[in-house]
């Protein structure tokens, strides 16, 4: 049996999962899915920012468009921190495809003219 807090929405349900993968404490089906993932393959979305190469003192925010395995978060950050992009930028624009073979892309989350 394991107990943890659901991070899917701000409600933050206290989930309990037993050894047969029965989930209790969840207010919605997403909590059940999260609990099972959390003990089999925990994943997290990374949100961070990268340099804008043609602007002074400017960063643009980015994220992984899918959650990636939790144990790859720091390795992914090392790669992301070496990225830069030229403005203008558009929300949804891909900066790097398939980071660390996770299937997730690094995408822009802010428009810069």
């Amino acid at each position: 049996m394991k107990e943890f807090t659901c991070i899917i929405c701000p409600r933050g349900c206290q989930l309990i999962i037993d050894k047969n993968n029965n989930v209790t404490g969840n207010a919605c089906p997403r909590g059940k899915e999260y609990a099972i993932n959390e003990i089999t393959n925990p994943t997290r979305t990374i949100t961070t920012s990268i340099r804008v190469s043609n602007r002074i003192d400017t960063l643009v925010s980015v994220k992984t468009n899918l959650a990636i395995p939790k144990n790859l978060v720091f390795e992914a950050m090392e790669i992301i921190n070496k990225l830069s992009i030229g403005a203008p930028t558009k929300i949804g624009q891909i900066v790097l495809k398939n980071i660390l073979d996770t299937g997730a892309d690094i995408i822009i989350t802010k428009n810069i003219d």
């Binding site: 961070t48 920012s49 925010s61 994220k63 929300i91 989350t109 802010k110």
Partner: peptide, 21 residues
């Protein structure tokens, strides 16, 4: 720049800049 915005307004999880844009 973190996510968690827009769950009530747009029924999806956005980062702050995505929400404001």
């Amino acid at each position: 720049i973190h996510n968690g915005f827009g769950l009530t307004e747009f029924k999806e999880e956005l980062t702050g800049p995505e929400y404001l844009w």
